[in-house]
Design a binder for these strands. Structure first.
Length: 482
RNA sequence: GGCCCCAUCGUCUAGCGGCCUAGGACACCGGGUUUUCAACCCGGCAACACGGGUUCGAUUCCCGUUGGGGUCACCA
């Protein structure tokens, strides 16, 4: 089996596209087939050149590797449609010669203009075939550049039935079809033509893509038939919606793979989560590695109904993945996270990073780490005191936190600055004054971080070091907390 | 609006005629653990859209209704 993912470079990879890529990858791996990556850059208006490397990077980060295509040359290249123009015009010429395509100077309608006009009307609207078709010679002349005109496919006018692995047989009636453009007036092919030609030439045998294409598959089926191409297997995927049930879009917050990477998510968590949007292995199994997904994936377990993208559940998957991953793996990902974000945490010291990972166990995303520990890496005079925290922990109560802190300051100065020593000192201190841990740890925490949240107090102090700890406590005691 | 598709807890879903007093996970609620936050542990709440059939028996099969989605570009 040969599958493919064929993104259009207009921006970062979207989670919907990522799932399509993942399923195609899984299908190929599962069957020992080939996964191909092709760039469909035929829309020069929306084209964003930088999007190409961005999409490749997003796929690699997810662990979705392709066997053939851009950056992995094979027999059927080039793998960018903009570099294959002569191939497409060759097939268009073939269609014109066969009397199956004609030129059309009609200007494109606005995308949404047709819909309101159709209210109350029956049947489809939009393009109408002219009563008098241009001659073959006129069309050929247009193709060769005589005048700017688009080339349309002459529909045979017959019902088309698509066999889909997910949705079964779906029939698109002839009266819903119309002559569609295959070559735009700028000389670039449309999706329908380029896609069909490339899939044939590149030997793609399984087309797995979003359900939005199912209702228009008749175009590709008709084109294949006219061109004498083979019929591939189809598997259309239910759509991914937002929590309101609307089409998932940027408006719902970040839905790009890259934004999750930058936000501190683990790729294995994202992969596991999106794999389950529209598919499941049956039973109660939910947590799966990429390797397990390859083993368990099966197109006949792909569902038919749309799924909502629940960020809460993704967060839970990430928390779990973070707890399960070994430290070496986490270190690699954490470094990646730091390289993408501005944080006070220095990224160069692997030992330090490992310590941070250890004392922050239970983190939800990597972003939790600078949120909890970032202040420890700032200058001792460069952090603010949270007013509510100061009042609650230092001012109120009897004895006050300030009073306890002053005592602590004195004892801390002479301590050996190692975790075990500090640990036992805290215990003894609490016991001696019959104070709860909270009454001791919290004042220290507020003094050295300005807030009530940080890793365990011993870890926090060891990480800070004696000098900085004392300097911060002194600053706090001096009353410079507001 | 035409056409196409879909329909189990709030969400992702298991279920492929009796195993279902409908299972799991996330979220939520309650409790526990605890030096903070998070994590963690235990318990709980919560669904077969509706109406007809078919059948000894329907969440499972059929039809209709309703609801939702997609599509109808010189975008992919």
């Amino acid at each position: 089996m040969k599958t493919r993912f064929a993104p259009s470079p207009t921006g970062h990879l979207h989670v919907g596209g990522a799932r399509t890529a993942l399923y195609n990858y899984l299908l190929a791996r599962k069957t020992g087939g080939t996964f191909l990556l092709r760039i469909e850059d035929t829309d020069r208006g929306r084209h964003v050149e930088e999007a190409v490397p961005m999409i490749l990077a997003d796929l690699k980060w997810l662990g979705i590797e392709w066997d053939e295509g851009i950056e992995a040359p094979g027999q059927a290249g080039p793998y960018r449609q903009s570099q294959r123009l002569p191939i497409y015009t060759g097939y268009v010429r073939q269609l014109i010669e066969a009397g199956l395509a004609y030129c059309s100077a009609e200007v494109a309608a606005e995308p949404d203009a047709a819909v309101p006009a159709a209210e109350g009307a029956k049947g489809p609207m939009g393009f109408r075939r002219p009563a008098q078709l241009p001659t073959k010679e006129q069309t050929l002349a247009a193709l060769d550049g005589a005048a700017p005109a688009a080339i349309r496919f002459l529909c045979p006018g017959k019902d088309v039935t698509i066999h889909d692995e997910v949705f079964g047989d779906v029939c698109i009636p002839a009266d819903q079809q119309e002559d569609f453009v295959i070559l735009k007036s700028d000389g670039f092919p449309t999706y329908n033509l380029a896609n069909v030609v490339d899939d044939e030439l590149m030997g793609v045998t399984m087309i797995c893509r979003g359900q939005e294409f199912l209702g228009q598959s008749w175009r590709q089926a008709l084109l294949r038939e006219a061109l004498g191409f083979r019929t591939p297997l189809y598997a259309h995927l239910p759509l991914i919606m937002d929590m309101q049930g609307r089409k998932l879009s940027k408006r719902d917050g970040d839905v790009d793979v890259h934004s999750f990477r930058k936000a501190g998510y683990l790729p294995e968590a994202l992969v596991n989560f999106i794999a389950l949007l529209g598919w499941n292995p049956g039973g109660e199994r939910e947590r799966m590695s990429m390797k397990e997904l390859v083993e368990l994936f099966s197109p006949d377990r792909i569902g038919k109904s749309n799924a909502k993208f629940d960020r809460e559940k993704l967060l839970a998957f990430n928390t779990d993945a973070g707890a399960c991953a070994d430290e070496d793996r986490l270190l690699v990902c954490f470094r990646d996270y730091l390289s993408l974000n501005e944080t006070p945490i220095p990224g160069g010291d692997a030992g330090l990073l490992r310590r941070l990972l250890r004392i922050n166990k239970g983190f939800r995303t990597f972003a939790d780490i600078p949120a909890r520990c970032g202040v420890l890496f700032k200058a001792d005079t460069d952090y603010a005191f949270d007013e509510k925290a100061v009042v609650k922990v230092l001012v109120k109560g009897e004895p006050t936190g300030y009073a306890v802190l002053a005592e602590i300051r004195g004892e801390l100065a002479g301590l050996a600055w190692e975790a075990p020593a500090i640990e036992s000192w805290v215990e003894k201190f609490c016991a001696a004054r019959s104070l709860g841990m909270g009454k001791v740890a919290q004042p220290i925490r507020v003094a050295v971080t300005g807030n009530t949240v940080s890793p365990a107090i011993v870890d926090t102090l060891v990480l800070l070091g004696r000098e900085k700890t004392l300097a911060r406590i002194d600053r706090c005691l001096a009353g410079k907390t507001v």
